[in-house]
């Protein structure tokens, strides 16, 4: 179990760095970064929804898929970059609690799943796109991929919002064993006997 142990050491080290302390204690920077993170939902997932709804055959069906992706995805990528930058800064400000958040962990899993889904789409589904590029209703594989994308990212929004709530925080014991295991809580004997 060197992986989780060294990750914990890393986040504990991160929490002690000057930048992290300055950020979490700042009156304006933290809320500004958090607001940017939330508002970027409109750019990142809004434009991704344009692409996914086109792939589902729900909207903009007269525009070829390749034209939608070529024009719209650069905005999605820009939004994603802004999300990652602001998200990393938010993690940097509150590293240990976020690392131990069950919601953050589920969010990361959902994001990895969304990434794999996008990678599969580009690798496999897109290969024969020339055949169905102009179809109003793309083939099942493309529609499944788009639906999966929308569902996973909706899950990312929900779990992301929940990180702010401390119901399952490690410092609120007793928690169910499953929570302590999944959140990687280090529970002391004193807390256990409470």
């Amino acid at each position: 179990m060197t992986g989780p142990v060294s990750m914990r050491a890393f986040v504990e080290w991160l929490a002690g760095t000057q930048g992290s302390i300055a950020l979490v204690e700042s009156l304006h920077m933290y809320p500004l970064i958090e607001t940017t993170h939330v508002l970027t939902l409109m750019l990142f997932l809004g434009t991704l929804a344009i692409v996914d709804l086109r792939l589902l055959g729900a909207l903009f069906t007269r525009v070829p898929v390749s034209e939608v992706t070529a024009r719209v995805l650069p905005f999605t990528v820009a939004g994603f970059a802004l999300m990652i930058i602001t998200g990393l800064l938010l993690f940097y400000a509150i590293p240990v609690r976020t690392y131990e958040s069950i919601w953050f962990r589920i969010k990361v899993i959902l994001m990895v799943a969304a990434g794999i889904n996008a990678w599969l789409f580009h690798r496999r589904v897109k290969r024969d796109r020339a055949l169905w590029d102009g179809w109003e209703r793309p083939p099942l594989g493309a529609r499944l991929s788009a639906g999966t994308s929308l569902g996973l990212w909706a899950g990312v929004i929900v779990t992301g919002r929940m990180i702010a709530y401390n119901w399952f925080d490690c410092d609120r014991q007793p928690q169910p064993d499953f929570i302590n295991w999944a959140a990687g809580c280090v529970v002391t004997m004193a807390e256990l006997s409470q």
Binding site: V38, L41, M42, L43, F44, L45, G46, T47, L48, A49, I50, L53, L59, F60, F75, W153, A154, I157, V158, R161
Partner: peptide
């Protein structure tokens, strides 16, 4: 928030 992302998409389109 899901509505915010969706509204953003419909406005930005």
């Amino acid at each position: 928030l899901i509505g915010l992302a969706s509204l953003g998409g419909s406005v930005l389109a």
